[in-house]
Nucleic acid binder design. Structure first.
Lengths: 135, 135
DNA sequence: AGAAATTTGTCCGTATGTATC
DNA sequence: AGATACATACGGACAAATTTC
C-alpha cells in the first residue's frame, strides 16, 4: 500500500481512537499508553505515523510523554461531586455555525458533563468542537 | 552522516535561526518563509527536519502555514488561543429542564466560553447553572 | 554497580497525495 | 495543464533516557 490518505489521514484516525480509549476509562489517568512499537503492530502503520498521532494528543493536553519511559494519560481533576460524561454528534445551531464558520446543521461533537448533587444537576457543561479536530 | 545530535538537536537550531530572522525583521510580518525545499538545501538537512523546525515555530505562534501556499510570519504577537466569556440568561430546553428538575422555559444562567484560534472558534464551552446558585 | 532490554528522540531518504499558483 | 509547495506515510538507522535483571 503506497500512501493514499483519502478523507481522514491515518494519524488522525489513530489519535481519535486513542482519545476514545482514554475518555472511556480504558486507559485511566496516569496509566501508560501502549509503547510506540506496540501501537505500530496494532494499527499496522509506521512508527512515524504513531508518533504523529501521539503528538496531536499531546498538543491537546490529553497525554504527556517522558523520554525513556513512555506516554501516559494526563490526570484531570474530577469536579468533586459525581460527574457523568456523554458524547454525541449534534447539528450546529445558528450561533455555533457562526463561531465555527460552518453551515447550520453541520455536524459538531458535543461533550456533556453533568455535575449532580443529590440527584439534581448542579452544573451542566457542554463542550463543542469540530468532528475533524486534531484532539 | 549518520545522526549525531550532540547538544541541541538540529531542528531546534534551525527553528532558532528562523526565529531570529523573523525578530530581526529579515522576514517581516506577513512575508513568506523560504520553501521547505529551499531550506533543505540551505541547511543541508532532510525535509523532515525542516518540517520539525517549522512545526515548533507554528506551535509557538510565530508562523502560520497554508497548504499549497507556504509558511509566513504572523502579523502580530501570538494570539495563541484567546478566550472570550459571555454570560446571559436563557430558557431551559427539554434536556436541561429534566436535569435541573425545573420546567421547560424556566430561566438558567448560561456562561459561554469561546476559545478562538486565528479568528475561528476552536472550542465552545457552555456551562449552565441555576440562577440562584452561588459563584 | 553494571549490563541488557525497552522506549522515546532525532535524522535520513524516498514516494505519493493534495492544494495552490 | 504544468509547476510549485505543503501533507502524509514508509522504512531504516542511531542516540539518549529509563527500567529491568
Amino acid at each position: 500500500m503506497p500512501t493514499p490518505h483519502y478523507g481522514q489521514p491515518r494519524y488522525r484516525t489513530i489519535a481519535n481512537e486513542l482519545r476514545q480509549r482514554i475518555e472511556d476509562g480504558e486507559i485511566p489517568p496516569g496509566a501508560l499508553l501502549p509503547a510506540e512499537s506496540t501501537l505500530t503492530s496494532e494499527f499496522r502503520v509506521s512508527r512515524g505515523t504513531i508518533r504523529h498521532a501521539i503528538a496531536a494528543l499531546r498538543d491537546a493536553g490529553l497525554v504527556a510523554t517522558e523520554h525513556g519511559r513512555g506516554t501516559y494519560a494526563v490526570a484531570f481533576v474530577p469536579p468533586a461531586s459525581q460527574a457523568e460524561t456523554k458524547e454525541r454528534e449534534v447539528a450546529a445551531d445558528a450561533d455555533l455555525a457562526i463561531l465555527f464558520k460552518i453551515e447550520v446543521g453541520a455536524a459538531l461533537i458535543e461533550r456533556e458533563v453533568i455535575v449532580r448533587r443529590s440527584g439534581r444537576a448542579q452544573e451542566v457543561v457542554r463542550t463543542y468542537r469540530l468532528p475533524d479536530c486534531a484532539l
